[in-house]
């Protein structure tokens, strides 16, 4: 079964080996990625808990942003609709031979169309300050929710690091530098952060889409500023990933700086 003589040959004359100490130790990014991804896939439960924090935070962020864009879209649609209505009424009033029914219809429509701008005219000033106040409050809410998420992720990463002290100590025994350990954990957190952000963005967007779709009809999507929305989506992705990365840095450094012996001794 075992062929020790051959094994000894393969292992090489440990004594005959060059004794020159060098400082070349490497962990290529491709290998680091492979190891980190494997770790995420095999510890899906832990990754899911970390990701949930990010998903919720980013979903809220996306919700706030796309809510604004959608409500703008709806307002735009309404204004446009009113304008066409007004234009139609104008056309009817100025038209040659309106039908009697049409006369009454336009008669009711016209005052409404005429009143609306007048009624709305004073509104923007009060609505403006109200809007400002509301958006300030929303900004605070968003910041708070992201902070809470960040703390949640840090906590989850700390747990994940603590669980793996033995593994970290073993890797150090095999010749890993502190920076390798940090690299592995950071790649892991970026992957989890990015995936969580994508999920969060989808969740937040779908919620807003359904809400406005049911309220104002799905035709509202035609009036949405998609360019602005996709800009915000990318921003949300970046924020989610950066948040996850930033929260992982302290635990990763803590793990890496532990002396190998202490890391090996830890029992959980």
């Amino acid at each position: 079964m075992m062929d020790v003589k051959k094994l000894a040959q393969v292992a090489g004359g440990g004594g005959a080996k060059s004794l020159q100490i060098q400082a070349q130790i490497s962990l290529p990014w491709s290998d680091a990625f492979r190891i980190s991804l494997k770790s995420v896939v095999l510890r899906l439960g832990r990754a899911a808990i970390t990701a949930t924090g990010i998903i919720l935070g980013v979903a809220f962020l996306t919700y706030v942003w796309s809510d604004r864009i959608f409500s703008e879209g709806v307002t735009k649609a309404r204004i446009q609709q009113e304008q066409t209505l007004a234009a139609a009424a104008e056309a009817v009033r100025g038209g040659g031979k309106p039908a009697a029914g049409g006369e009454t219809a336009s008669g009711t429509a016209t005052p409404a169309g005429a009143e609306r701008p007048a009624g709305e005219a004073p509104a923007p000033t009060t609505a403006g300050s109200e809007d400002q106040e509301r958006s300030a409050r929303t900004t605070w809410l968003v910041i708070m929710s992201l902070l809470v998420c960040g703390i949640g992720i840090t906590n989850s990463m700390l747990m994940s690091v603590t669980e793996r002290f033995q593994e970290i100590g073993t890797m150090k025994c095999l010749g890993a530098l502190d920076s390798f350990i940090v690299r592995l954990f950071l790649i892991e957190s970026v992957v989890v952060g990015a995936l969580g952000s994508v999920a969060g963005i989808l969740l937040g967007f779908l919620f807003v889409l359904l809400y406005y779709g049911v309220k104002a009809g799905f035709s509202v999507t035609a009036k949405i500023d998609w360019a602005e929305l996709s800009g915000y989506v990318l921003l949300a992705l970046a924020i989610g990933t950066a948040l996850s990365l930033a929260s992982a840095i302290p635990p990763a450094i803590r793990a890496a700086q532990m002396p190998a012996a202490a890391a090996l001794r830890t029992e959980i």
């Binding site: 020790v4 094994l7 000894a8 040959q9 292992a11």
Partner: peptide, 8 residues
């Protein structure tokens, strides 16, 4: 055996 064979 490793010790004897390879001198480790």
């Amino acid at each position: 055996e490793l010790n004897v064979e390879s001198g480790v």
